[in-house]
């Protein structure tokens, strides 16, 4: 089973989590742990360009992060989702709940 990697970097006022690999029930724990560590505390961006597959486990992590951020007025965006990640997000019927930017350069100041 292929694992995922989640790298955390600071970029201006944003904390960026870069995810590579599949997000499923076996792999989402690391993403969840790192997301929960930052969500609602800082402005957070999650780069999903390198995501090879994404199940409901990944959507749940993203939704929790969005709601954590909203609860305290912090910002949360998804960056450059891969095709499979985009489709997974759109399958919810509420893609507009996940603010998205095409690249890290497009992160708001």
């Amino acid at each position: 089973m292929t694992g995922i990697s989640v790298e955390v970097i600071e970029r201006g006022s944003w904390t960026v989590l870069t995810v590579n690999g599949p997000i499923n029930s076996y792999t989402y724990n690391e993403l969840q742990e790192k997301t929960m560590r930052h969500a609602g505390r800082v402005d957070m961006a999650v780069d999903l360009a390198g995501v090879s597959s994404m199940t409901s486990a990944g959507i749940g992590v993203m939704l929790a992060a969005v709601e954590d951020a909203e609860a305290v007025g912090k910002r949360f965006v998804i960056v450059a989702p891969s095709e499979v990640a985009r489709l997974a997000i759109e399958s919810t019927g509420f893609a507009d709940r996940f603010p998205t930017v095409p690249s890290l350069k497009d992160l708001p100041a």
């Binding site: 959507i59 939704l63 709601e67 399958s91």
Partner: peptide, 8 residues
């Protein structure tokens, strides 16, 4: 339900 929970 806990934050981030959804039903499909």
């Amino acid at each position: 339900l806990p934050r981030g929970t959804f039903f499909s």
